[in-house]
Simulated scan of single mutants.
Amino acid sequence: MGNGDRQRASVRTSQERQAQARPRPDVACRTCASANVTVQFGKYGYYLNCGDCGGNTPAKPVCAACGQPGKVSKRGPEFTATCAGGHTWAYWTNPA
């Protein structure tokens, strides 16, 4: 990996972190519309657990680039989504 590739990778990672820090309208409680949620894994897959009302919402990401449904995957507290079109994006990061 060349020096230019490392710089581009670090910029992309920084941009992804900045985008993750902003509230996301597609990641909110369906009961109270709160963004105070954590992603959990349960019997039916990943879901959002609301810290305000205790409600559960299925984690159903949709790709902004092509509109296809995405599949959630986890690495530590970070969750990413990948669609069938090959796009990958940061979905959510649970608070520590």
Rank of each mutant, 00 (worst) to 15 (best):
A35Q: 13
A21W: 08
N94F: 01
N56V: 09
R6E: 14
Y46I: 01
N3Y: 10
P77G: 02
V27C: 09
P23G: 04
T57P: 12
W89Q: 05
E78Y: 03
T93M: 01
S10I: 07
A33M: 07
C53Q: 14
R22K: 13
C50Y: 08
R17G: 05
Y91F: 15
V11G: 07
V37P: 02
M1D: 13
R6W: 09
P77M: 04
H87Y: 03
N49S: 12
G2R: 09
P77C: 01
P58A: 13
Y47Q: 04
C63R: 06
N94V: 01
H87S: 04
Q40P: 00
F79P: 04
V37G: 01
A96T: 11
N36S: 12
A96L: 07
G51Q: 15
S14W: 06
V72S: 08
F79N: 07
A9Y: 04
K60L: 14
G85C: 14
T13C: 03
A9I: 08
Q68V: 01
C53A: 13
A59W: 10
G51H: 13
A64G: 14
Q18C: 01
V72C: 10
S73E: 14
Q68L: 15
G70F: 00
R24I: 06
C66S: 05
Y44H: 13
G76P: 02
G2P: 11
S10F: 01
C83L: 04
N94W: 00
T38M: 03
A35S: 14
F79R: 04
P69F: 10
T93L: 00
A96N: 05
P61W: 15
G51V: 08
D52H: 10
P95C: 02
A19N: 08
R8M: 09
F41H: 09
Y44T: 13
C32P: 03
T82A: 11
N94L: 01
C29A: 06
R17W: 12
Y46P: 00
A19F: 10
R6A: 15
T57Y: 14
V27N: 02
G4K: 12
V37Y: 06
F41G: 02
T88D: 09
R8E: 13
C50T: 11
C66Q: 05
S73N: 11
C83S: 06
W92Q: 02
A19V: 02
H87M: 07
C50G: 08
K71F: 09
C32D: 09
V62I: 15
F41D: 07
L48P: 06
W92K: 00
F79E: 05
C50R: 11
V11W: 08
S34Q: 12
Q68M: 11
G76A: 04
G42N: 03
A21F: 04
C63F: 06
P23C: 02
